[in-house]
Amino acid sequence: MTTGEARRAFEAAYDRAPEAVASAPGRVNLVGGHTDYNQGLVLPVAIDYRTAVAIAPRDDGRYRLRSTDFEGEVRVDGLPDDPLDTHDAMWANYPLGVLVELAAADLTAERGLDLLVAGDVPRGAGLSSSAALEVATAAAAYALDTPGEALPRRDLAEAAWRAETGFVGLDCGIMDQYASALCRAGEALFLDCRSRETRGVTFDDDGLRTVVVDTRVEHELASSAYNDRVRECEAAVARFDASLGDVTSLRDVDRDALVAHSDDLPSTLRRRARHVVTENERVRTAVDALEAGDVEAVGDCMFESHASLRDDYEVSCRELDAVVELAWETSGVLGARMTGGGFGGSVVALVEAGAVDDFRAHVDAAYAERADTDVDPRTFVCSAAEGVSVG
């Protein structure tokens, strides 16, 4: 999705030209599932599917919002104190929440705007379409007030994250917003979700392809189960803190402590903690492997990550498992795992360029029977893309 397409859609909708346009990418996560809200480590890559936001100021304090994905127009007089609760307007809470946070942080002025959203990041596929929308909104609004200045990417990512956790109300980690804002083309982003430290790691996908298989399955339990996992991790933290002291998140627990005190935890909490602790180790292993050019080791980490998410964290489902099994069976697929919150959404696979067609054919031929579904998956071949940009 180009900013030019968003610009043209804005002009058609509002009969004037936008004054600022920005775009931000979706993301896949190579390794590091459900570690971000545990202050752990993640290794996301931005993908070349983007959301663009075009805006222009108004002088009456009104906000008008449109999206090419939804019918109609959302109008509010002034920035709202609470999220909109009507079904047709709920998508607008993401850009509105960002505008609220930017104004509160004095990053932008509070004034009326016309805003239009256009993009090709698949919604509901676990590719972080919401973060792409939030970060693109933040960048466009900042560029409107400070034209020509470099984007404060971290500040915009933090504002976007606060919008989703505060205004929208999803208790998520910071990975998605940071990936959309800070990733660079040809790199994965090694992110420490506790310190917010980041490092670009060369992800040379020449000869490799990042293939996303969207199962097109959305399970109703996804949001409630996500919140359950957050609470379970908090309960495990409380147990470890009682035994060890100074444990504020599962980031403070290493493998030795996990083994030594595993009997202090109920089975469910033990498995949740084991996933987080070992997943942080897998992220470090994958980073070292990428830096050494050992992509096969990265693939091994991905398969191991999925097994842990499936068995210890219990956030997979038969559709995701079926795709990972098909990836395992296909020569030239180095690794695969679920990406996103789970219970549906997508699998990300690291595939040799010459094996992409074989992998897609195997999925097309065997997925329905293996997953016991009549829903056809969608497949996207992606490259490691640039983060948020203006213009």
Rank of each mutant, 00 (worst) to 15 (best):
T146C: 14
L269M: 08
E319K: 03
V42I: 10
R7E: 11
R360A: 15
A141V: 09
C233H: 05
T108Y: 05
R231P: 10
S305G: 08
G391C: 04
G166D: 03
Q177S: 02
A366W: 14
D294K: 00
A235S: 15
H219S: 13
V324T: 03
G293L: 06
D60V: 03
V213H: 13
T210D: 14
V323E: 07
R209C: 12
D171I: 02
E234T: 07
A353N: 14
A24E: 08
W328A: 15
T285H: 14
A349K: 07
G341K: 00
D364T: 01
A185D: 12
G61D: 00
E218K: 07
L113E: 10
C317V: 05
V31I: 11
Y49N: 14
A355N: 06
L127N: 05
N38E: 13
D176C: 00
E218Y: 13
V315L: 06
R111D: 09
V31E: 00
A136P: 14
D145G: 06
V315M: 11
D205Y: 10
V100Y: 09
A141C: 03
P147F: 08
G78E: 06
V21H: 07
V31K: 08
L170I: 12
A20I: 07
A157M: 03
D374A: 04
R58D: 02
P95W: 13
V28F: 08
V117P: 14
R310D: 01
D36W: 00
D263L: 10
A109P: 01
D357Q: 12
A236G: 04
I174E: 11
G169M: 04
A17K: 09
T198F: 10
L265N: 02
E325L: 13
V351N: 01
R153Q: 11
E149N: 00
R8T: 15
V211H: 09
L65G: 03
F203P: 04
A349N: 07
D358T: 11
A286F: 09
G332F: 11
E281W: 06
T3L: 00
H275A: 01
A307C: 11
E319C: 03
A92Y: 13
D206R: 06
D77R: 09
A46G: 05
Y94T: 08
V53Y: 10
G354V: 03
R337F: 10
T35D: 09
A257P: 12
M175N: 06
T202I: 13
A327S: 06
L102G: 03
V74G: 02
L334I: 06
D59Y: 12
P44C: 02
V390L: 01
A235H: 12
T339D: 06
A307P: 14
P152E: 07
F203Q: 12
R370V: 14
C301P: 14
T210R: 00
L290R: 02
V277F: 02
F203V: 13
G341W: 11
G345D: 05
R229T: 03
A138M: 03
H219T: 12
G340M: 02
